[in-house]
């Protein structure tokens, strides 16, 4: 097979989901009223999004609470049917071929577990091995890999209900990876985890991506994870895609300014530069704002050091949380 026309792993065109909920009134009078004239309200959870994902990409889906991230993921795995538009996974529609698609798909819903509550963790794995028809030798090899990164063997004999949140999450990740899927959907996989586990999960995702070219879609509210993992970030707000680019591009576009803080030996400071702005002068400390595209930090530093002796300095990069918050705020105005 030639590699010339590999179709995108995911292709979504105008994908939409409307939830119809009955508006209920409270109280006894309301309850009677609800029986007869419950009003339907329509909520557009996902509102016509289109995107493509190629094999081997790690894409971060971010957006404020209720933006429609989980809904999009659910439509991509075929558990929810779109109310408009369409999505294809490897050219197949999850609506029609759910069972086929799901065979090569690993999904982790952070707040839910696919493990059997009452059983030892290993028992759930054994069931999954049979569901996905993984042969024993392959399974053992995969488990060894998973154990190396996620320390699965420490917890494999513990009943799932006795696992801590982080341990359970490790178990769930392993369960999703057991059949070495080519596509991985992770909906908040690091929710409530300690730094150590978070780090190992990020490492794990990176490793399988590199080793097997696994395509990963990740939603999270932890921007450190996104920064560590994602080549590409899709920001969703109010059911619409507001930005689709790499993290650097986002920073360059929305908040291209960096800050330079310089401590001098004098408090008599007269500083000016055509391509940098002095934000404030406080005693012996000057804060300057400048754009990466206009002047480099070293250029600016050497300019200052020609006039004053520099005691100390620090460069403040844009805080990605700020950047993202700014994008969330400018609803519906696409950042292009």
């Amino acid at each position: 097979m030639e590699q010339k026309t590999t179709p995108p792993v995911i292709k979504a065109v105008n994908l939409s989901k409307e939830f119809i909920t009955k508006k209920k009134e409270s109280g006894i009078k309301g309850a009677v009223k609800n029986l007869f004239f419950a009003k339907n309200t329509v909520k557009k959870a996902v509102d016509g999004i289109s995107f493509e994902v190629q094999r081997g990409e790690i894409v971060g889906f971010i957006g404020p609470n209720g933006a429609g991230k989980s809904t999009t993921i659910k439509m991509m795995c075929g558990i929810l049917n779109p109310s408009g538009g369409e999505v294809w996974i490897n050219g197949l529609s999850p609506k029609k071929d759910r069972q086929v698609i799901v065979k090569d798909l690993g999904v982790v819903f952070g707040q839910r577990s696919q493990l059997y509550w009452d059983l030892r963790l290993g028992e759930s794995f054994e069931l999954l091995r049979r569901i996905y028809e993984v042969d024993k030798a392959k399974y053992d090899a995969t488990m060894e890999d998973l154990d190396r990164i996620l320390n699965i063997n420490d917890i494999i004999n513990t009943p799932v209900r006795q696992l801590s949140l982080g341990q359970r999450m490790r178990g769930d990740l392993a369960a999703a990876m057991l059949h070495s899927p080519a596509l991985l959907f992770l909906d908040e996989p690091t929710i409530g985890l300690d730094v150590e586990v978070k780090y190992s999960i990020c490492k794990f995702i990176k490793e399988i991506n590199k080793k097997y070219q696994t395509t990963v879609i990740l939603t999270t509210h932890d921007l450190d994870d996104v920064q560590a993992l994602c080549d590409r970030i899709i920001i969703i707000n109010d059911g619409k895609i507001v930005s689709d680019s790499s993290l650097e591009d986002i920073i360059d576009k929305t908040s291209p300014e960096r800050q330079l803080i310089v401590d001098l030996y004098t408090d008599d400071i007269q500083l000016e530069h055509p391509r940098a702005e002095v934000v404030k002068i406080e005693g012996q400390r000057v804060t300057l704002k400048f754009r990466k595209t206009e002047i480099s930090a070293s250029e600016l530093i050497s300019y200052i050091s020609k006039q004053y002796a520099i005691r100390d300095l620090s460069l403040v990069e844009t805080d990605i949380d700020d950047v993202i918050r700014q994008i969330y705020k400018q609803q519906r105005e696409p950042v292009v």
Binding site: K74, C77, G78, I79, R98, Q99, V100, V102, K103, L105, V107, F109, R112, S113, Q114, L128, I131, Y132
Partner: peptide, 13 residues
């Protein structure tokens, strides 16, 4: 509890 989702992400009937 919304756990039907995890049953339907498996390739089984």
């Amino acid at each position: 509890q919304g756990n039907v989702a995890v049953d339907y992400i498996k390739p089984v009937n």
